[in-house]
Write a protein that binds this DNA or RNA. Structure first.
Lengths: 161, 161
DNA sequence: CGATTCCGAAACTACACTGGTTACAGTTAT
DNA sequence: ATAACTGTAACCAGTGTAGTTTCGGAATCG
């Protein structure tokens, strides 16, 4: 049921935004506007990205966040590790019966399989970079996948484009 | 944070248990004893496995659950689909700004990547059967060692478009 | 038949995580 | 100093999970 939190999606969104505004600091307020959430939510995620060394943040007038690495040097796996401190993707049940063969051994077997499944998922994330995401977004802009994309630049980009 | 629920682990546990007691019906009470949880929790999961056609359940005296398929014909992907009705592994953020390039196109891009990651994970689960799990459990019973679970699986496709 | 054994499902609880919000202290440029 | 930022704590509502109790229904057996 409960999926991986949308922090991952928001983080990639923000990083793509920073890749778009590569040369200028972006405030949490503006990022929140693009994501359509609260600035504090963005700042919480920026804190995780900063701890992971993916962005640098500066307080004060004219401050904001900037990418700390090149977009092609940030994979979605980096982002995943930064914002999802979960160590295991699958939860194990806590205390199976130690007096039967199944209960006393199932956890180790499950752990092995689940770990491999987790790694396979991370393998995909590790091969996609923020630069890839940004490029795909721009391709959709050009391809007209979203109607009204022509004036979208003027609407959101209020600073030097 | 929030991992995939332990229903998956419990389900594989009970299916391995049923593979062990292949010829006799097992009551939810006994399975709950092996898993170390409440019988109602087991019955809830058995309901999902029954709906998926993995087990058959019989009420009344001498009743209980039995495998409806051969253990080698039940993959962990079958179990995953039975007990986790989640359609997507990663959550997307709900309503990004439609007036900027990033916000109006990021969701489609994210959906593609996240879908591939999910499929890679499911690919691993699809290559492990209840028979595999049961065999590994028995090997641990005999060996007593915590050997690696890596056995019969190839790396899932980690290609990105 | 009626008692026993078993499942199915509803209802309720406790707990944890998520995402949104307000509030306030700290930092920086002008 | 003031204004513009971040960082963080605190609180809230909504949601999912897992455990528990309780009841009704189905199947078996004496």
């Amino acid at each position: 049921m409960s999926a991986i939190s949308s922090r991952m999606a928001v983080a990639v969104h923000v990083l793509a935004y920073l890749a778009w505004r590569r040369d200028e600091p972006v405030t949490s307020e503006r990022m929140a506007g693009s994501v359509n959430t609260n600035a504090v939510v963005v700042r919480r995620i920026m804190g995780a990205l900063r701890n992971a060394g993916l962005v640098s943040v500066q307080p004060g007038v004219g401050g904001g966040a900037q990418l700390a690495r090149e977009p092609h040097d940030i994979t979605l796996l980096d982002v995943y590790r930064a914002v999802e401190e979960k160590e295991e993707l699958f939860a194990l049940h806590s205390q199976p019966c130690r007096h039967c063969d199944i209960g006393s051994n199932i956890r180790q077997v499950l752990q092995g399989v689940f770990c491999q499944a987790h790694h396979a998922m991370q393998g995909v994330l590790g091969q996609v970079t923020i630069a890839d995401v940004f490029r795909q977004v721009q391709q959709q802009v050009r391809g007209g996948a979203c109607a009204g994309a022509a004036d979208s630049l003027a609407a959101a980009g209020t600073q030097h484009a």
